[in-house]
């Protein structure tokens, strides 16, 4: 029943422990609304037919509502509204009161990206990894204007404000990738300020975290690398833009249709076919010419071959460019944060 309603109402998958609670109340409200709304519509239609001028008495009867009816006009809807308000407020309190054992994640909004950092590392741009079945407390702030962290599948949203921390928590109930959107208008690229929550089984999450701590892919200050590019790498950047590589590969650490190029050179990439490969010059060249030979785990085999479309010089420039995209040594995330913090619980 609720699955059916969820589909009729176009609600996304209910992927957090909060989502079914919100949805249940949503269904209660919407079903009541439609029943009463249909009642009003039908009443209107019946009146239109029965009391149409010409059919009805020419002189309508004089009548005013008796006091009890007036009271009912106010009382009956009020009872429903208050009930919904109370039920909703219960869930709201729950959603805004993180359990003590929650895993903390610092979330920083910035025009137009999301950064995530765990106390003690690692930090990520654009991807938030969380374990399933574990409460996660988000401590949100912003570097510039107001943003709003929104995961439709979790039914969770909280504004990120400059100069203060707000908090919200959620618990993902099953592994998957969930869209993060910015819900507070923040300027030019508001509609592209997207990120992703990757929910992993707790074991997989720990593995991921251990690996990230040793080999972080924290990105910062995308603007600066520009000036540091050598001439060949700079040309590679132009080629990458012209050939459309950047439609699928990002330079900021965010996975997109393809893996990010940031920190790619020299990285061990896990392969879809099992095993892994070190991203050296040979692998990079192969990936351009015969992309399906080794597909990185977690990505669809969609990259076209550039065989015949790239000259040898262009391949060299591209590789030089990718080489240049090394993350700066990550600062430990707490230093990334302003030095005031949320109150201890």
């Amino acid at each position: 029943m609720s699955e059916l309603l969820r589909r009729i109402l176009f609600l996304p998958d209910a992927a957090s422990s909060l989502a079914p609670r919100v949805d249940r109340l949503h269904f209660f409200i919407i079903v009541t609304t439609f029943i009463v709304g249909a009642g009003i519509g039908l009443t209107g239609l019946i009146f239109l037919v029965r009391y149409r001028r010409g059919r009805a008495e020419a002189l309508a009867p004089v009548m005013t509502a008796p006091a009890w009816l007036e009271a009912a006009f106010a009382g009956v809807p009020l009872a429903f509204f208050l009930l919904w308000g109370a039920l909703g407020f219960q869930d709201y309190i729950w959603a805004r009161t993180p359990p003590r054992e929650a895993l903390d994640v610092y979330v920083t909004g910035k025009q137009w990206m999301w950064k995530f950092a765990y106390p003690g590392g690692p930090g990520m741009v654009g991807v938030l990894h969380v374990p399933t079945g574990t409460p996660v407390r988000l401590l949100l702030t912003s570097r510039d204007v107001i943003h709003s962290f929104y995961v439709p599948a979790f039914r969770v949203k909280m504004d990120a404000l400059p100069g203060r921390y707000t908090e919200i928590w959620f618990e993902a109930v099953r592994p998957g990738r969930y869209r993060v959107l910015c819900a507070e208008y923040c300027g030019l690229d508001h509609s592209r300020m997207r990120a992703e929550v990757v929910a992993l089984e707790p074991g997989a999450f720990e593995t991921w975290r251990a690996r990230q701590r040793s080999e972080p892919t924290w990105a910062s200050g995308e603007g600066e690398e520009e000036s540091l590019l050598g001439p060949l790498a700079a040309e590679g950047r132009v080629v990458a833009a012209k050939q459309g590589c950047l439609q699928c590969h990002t330079l900021d650490g965010t996975p997109h249709i393809g893996p990010t190029w940031l920190g790619l050179y020299g990285r061990e990439e896990p392969l879809a076919s099992g095993g892994s490969v070190r991203a050296d010059v040979a692998y990079l060249t192969e990936s351009m010419m015969d992309p399906l030979a080794k597909v990185v785990a977690g990505y669809a085999p969609v990259m076209p071959s550039f065989h015949g479309r790239l000259s040898a010089a262009e391949v060299g420039a591209l590789i030089e460019f990718i080489k240049s995209l090394q993350p700066e040594r990550p600062e430990p995330p707490p230093v990334q944060e302003p030095d005031y913090g949320p109150l201890p619980r």
Binding site: L18, R21, V22, L25, H26, I29, I30, T33, V36, G37, F81, W84, G85, L87, G88, F89, Q90, D91, Y92, A95, S148, Y150, P152, R155, V156, K157, A183, E184, Y185
Partner: peptide
């Protein structure tokens, strides 16, 4: 329907999803 959707967004938990 406008008024009822107003009531709906005035329900705090539901507004976590619907706001903005």
């Amino acid at each position: 329907f406008g008024g009822m959707s107003g009531v709906a967004v005035a329900v705090t938990s539901a507004d976590l999803h619907w706001h903005d």
